[in-house]
Design a binder for these strands. Structure first.
Length: 211
DNA sequence: TAGACGATAGCCT
DNA sequence: GGCTATCGTCTAA
């Protein structure tokens, strides 16, 4: 298994990190020790002087992780139903992050699929056939609330160290994404600073949440 | 302590 | 395209 990206990766400007995360590998180790691996294909940047950023008006109990050191996870609940995963950037004390909006399955799509649809399916039923079918089910990766459900990411992972291979969630090197395969657009679902072109996605990926 | 409002997704017309 | 479930968080009082 590949080793985690160093903390210095997250010390680059947040827009640079958001772009650079495209193609990177996200590894999730579940409570039972089983892992699932995905590739990041869509991100958004949020900075400290950005009106759309949760930390724009200062530190609160919810956004505390964003004020911590770079290379950790910021996980929060949105609309009372969905968890969203961010990679914290910038030095400790400066609250910036990159939201991970979409991923494509690389390894163990079957487990992600079961996580998504619920616990009705037993481990024994997670066959290769299920895995093949899951690799085409965009619900397990195309969308910030979907990927966290499929990867069982919730508040318990808020603050997780993304630079530690022992962590239950970390990010490693992946596939290089060519500049011509990167699309830059405005961010999704926000009302403030809605015109900032701070969203990035992989044009050739079928797992992008919205075109 | 009440009220407004989300960095969404799924279902409806 | 529109509607809304669902609830934690923040603000104002």
């Amino acid at each position: 298994m590949s080793s985690p990206l160093p903390r210095d990766f997250y010390r680059q400007p947040t827009l640079t990190v958001a772009r650079a995360l495209l193609g990177k590998t996200l590894i999730r180790r579940f409570d039972d020790g089983v892992t699932a691996t995905v590739r990041i294909v869509e991100t958004e940047a949020y900075t400290t002087d950005d009106p759309a950023c949760h930390a724009y008006k200062g530190q609160t109990a919810r956004n505390r992780s964003m004020f911590g050191p770079p290379g950790h996870a910021y996980v929060y609940l949105i609309y009372g139903m969905y968890w969203c995963l961010n990679a914290v950037t910038a030095e400790e004390g400066t609250a910036e992050a990159a939201l991970i909006r979409a991923v494509e399955p690389v390894e163990n799509a079957a487990r992600m699929w079961r996580n998504y649809v619920g616990e009705a399916v037993s481990d024994a039923a997670l066959s290769d056939d299920v895995d093949m079918a899951a690799r085409d089910d965009k619900r397990i990766g195309a969308g910030p609330g979907r990927l966290t459900k499929a990867l069982a990411i919730a508040r318990a992972l808020d603050g997780a160290d993304l630079t530690n291979a022992e962590s239950r969630l970390f990010i490693a090197e992946g596939k290089e994404i060519a500049e011509e395969d990167v699309v830059t657009t405005t961010r999704i679902g926000i009302t403030r600073a809605a015109d900032f072109p701070w969203r990035f996605y992989v044009r050739s990926s079928r797992w992008v949440s919205r075109r």
